[in-house]
Amino acid sequence: MNPASEAGTVFIVDDDASFLKSVARLLQATGYNVLTFDSANKFLHQLVPGMSGCVLADLQMPGMNGLELQEALAKSANPLPVVFLSAHGDIPTTVQAMRRGAEDFLTKLGPKEKLLDAVKRAFARGARERKERGQLEELRGRFDALTPRELEVLEHVMRGKPNKQIAGDLGINERTVKLHRTNLTRRLQVQSMAELTRLVEEAGLFKVGKAE
């Protein structure tokens, strides 16, 4: 039952020194690696992309509060899952925090099982998301390998244009269009048109550009 085997750290952020210490003790005793911070800013400054685990944050803090921390973290290079711990949470704040993707929203007086369970889930989610982020990066890396002209052609192909029209739109020879298509399917390692379409969707390319 030792979750510490999963590499990762619980980053605890709370302005109440006493509570900070007590939660750290509990999690340490349970086997987690723990780092404590008495303000959101200090935590964000020390966070680096390679760190894994989850964030256990108080909601009400002077300076940057819990929700603001969540927002800043989501935009960062390492969007760790967040579990909120509040001394006294109100419903609107809870709803807001959960909508923004918080793993859980707990009260400080809640049972320890709930807390440990939430941390465990957050760790799993963090690992999953990190893996997904890795895959996406690999995928995007493939697209990054395409030349600007190949990307242009791909964009037109995804809009369902025939080669002739693509050649006309780009002011190039139809044969050249065909050459570009062969090259890009080879670089993206796809066998069919259907596979190509799925790959483009997974990488999240051209989502906005369709209306043009």
């Binding site: 109440d16 006493s18 509570f19 210490k21 007590s22 939660v23 003790r25 509990l26 711990l85 001394a87 009260t107 400080k108 007086l109 320890k112």
Partner: peptide
């Protein structure tokens, strides 16, 4: 705050 700390 203190009650939570005591519990943990």
């Amino acid at each position: 705050q203190p009650l939570g700390a005591i519990l943990r």
